[in-house]
Amino acid sequence: MEKNVRETIKEIIRRHLKLKQGKVFGQCLTAVGWVGGTLPEMYEKDGMVEVSMADVAGGGFAVGAALMNSRPIYVIRYQGFNWYNAPMIVNYACKSKEIWKKPCPVFVRSIAMEGGIGPVAGSSHHSLYYRMPGVKICSPMTPKEYKSIYKKFMREDDVFYVSEHRGSYNNKKELKNVLVKKPDIVLFAISITRFEAIKALNILIKQNIKISLHHILWIKPLKIESKFIKNLKESKYGGLILDDDYENGIAKSIANELNIKSGKPIYTLGLKEKSAGFYPTKDNLPPNKNEIIKKINKIINEKK
C-alpha cells in the first residue's frame, strides 16, 4: 500500500538506525506522540538518543556525533526552536568542510506547524539558516521527495536543513508542476503553501486566469526548472513566491534571483510582519487559497 509522508519518514528512520547504524538525536523523541508518529518505537540502545532539554547544547551534541562520521539525524520538534538549536550547526557543522576539510553532515529534521501555538513555535524558519554558507535547504512535502532528499544526504557530505511541515504528514500524493503557455502569473510555492497554491490555481482557472505553478523542493541551492524561467519571461504579470516563513527572508531572496533571471516583477506572499498570538484572530498563518487569489487579483488589477 502507498505510504504517506509520516510513514515514509518513519521507515527511513528505522532503516537509518538498523541498517546504517546511524543515530537520531532530539528532545522528547520517545514521548507519547513519537514526534507526530514519524519515529519508530526505538530507544537509546537502538540509536534513538534523548538529549537534555537544553536547546543551546543539543545542536552541539549532534555536531560532535557528526564529526565522528555517524551521519546523525537531529530532530527539532518546532522550527522556532532553531533560534537556540542552530548556532553550532550553522557555525560549526556547516563550515567544517570549508575551513578544516572535515565534513560534518547533519540531517536536521526541522518541523513546522501552526495554528494556536503562539509567537515562537509556529511556522517555518528556514530563512534563519539560508544566509549561512555550507548548508543545503529543502522542504519535502511528498513521500518521493522525502526519500530522494534522504538518499542525497547519504551520498553527500553536507549539512541538510529539512524544512518539514506537519500538514504534509498525511499526504500520499506527489505534487506536479503545472506549466501553461504564456501565463498571467507563475506561482513558486514552498512548504505547506504548495497545497494551498494548488487549490487557488483550480479556482483561478475558472476565472480565466492563466497560472503556472512550480513547486520548490530545493531552496538552497535553489532549483527551478529552466522551462519555468522561460515561462516566467513569457508571463504577463510576472511571478509570485509563496512561503510559510516571513516574507523578509527566503521569499524575497528568491524573488530577487528570479527577477534578475527573467526581468519580470516577482511578488512575495508569506507570513505577515507581525507576531503570532494564540487566539485564532491574533494568529499569523501562511497564505491560504483565498489570500493567494486576492493577491493575484490585486497584482492583475494594478497592472491593468
Partner: peptide, 13 residues
C-alpha cells in the same frame, strides 16, 4: 562551543 561538540563526539565514539 567546543564543550557540547566534544560531548557529542565522545558520546558517539
Amino acid at each position: 562551543t567546543q564543550a557540547p561538540i566534544a560531548v557529542g563526539a565522545c558520546f558517539q565514539s
